[in-house]
Amino acid sequence: MLDVTGISHTYGSGAKTHTALGDITFSVEKGEIVCIVGPSGCGKSTLLRAISGLLPPTAGESRFMGERITEVPHDLAFVFQEYSKSLFPWLTVRGNVAFPLKARGMSRRQRHEVVDEALGWVGLADAVEKYPWQLSGGMQQRVAIARALVCQPALLMMDEPFASVDAQTRAELEDLLLRVRREYDTTVLLVTHDIDESVYLSDRVLVLSKAPSTVVSTLTVSLGAERDQITTKETDDFVHLRGEVARLLRYGTAGVHDEVHEVKQAVPVEAVAE
């Protein structure tokens, strides 16, 4: 569905250039959830923007259902970390979720129905007439997710979507995303810095190196479609995978590193939090 070939991006020119993305190639199949993890400052967000057409990449190309992406495709929706900025404060929750539908010329009655359904789905049926700024962070992000889903996009791109909410809410939103995937078969490409989250959510985890970043490794996560915040995270598979991702982030290879001095010299990475 999404084929990324040799994408690289360099900011600035002359002496001040900063190459954020080295040479990145991967693809996402229909119905997959793929998480991208990488050390902070490795250009994760740049990658998402360069793939999706928000930012023209310096080199390489990405194809969405076979078509080369030059601007953001119609069938692609975004959820960003800054929910408070991405929602429109002048519209109610209903207005926000209905906004993309209105732009597509859907009739008022139909909009009403679709929005009610989407908001019921994310558990916000009671907040329909409220304004985003009257809601908690987690609820605002639910609105943003509902707005992204309401057009039934083929591909959902999420840039650290749960990084600004508390741990409890984060777990709820992660489960909401898994439910979305099960129900709608949505394809998701999600950027995160949280190792547990990447393993818990994905079918595959792409681990990036620090800038100029490349894909260090791709891990297949076979935890099944049904996942649980407690029991899944207790399984050997999960524990093994999260260790693997952490090691890849720290050393760039999946091998076991016993020597203490090597650990000390390792580049500190953002394994815990940003």
Partner: peptide, 25 residues
């Protein structure tokens, strides 16, 4: 910029973008 990026995938025409996003903001 987040607002701009969010609306980019909605494919709004320029006048519509100005009237329904930029103007209220």
């Amino acid at each position: 910029e987040t607002v701009v990026e969010t609306t980019r995938s909605m494919r709004l025409s320029k006048p519509r973008f100005l009237a329904t996003v930029v103007l209220p903001a």
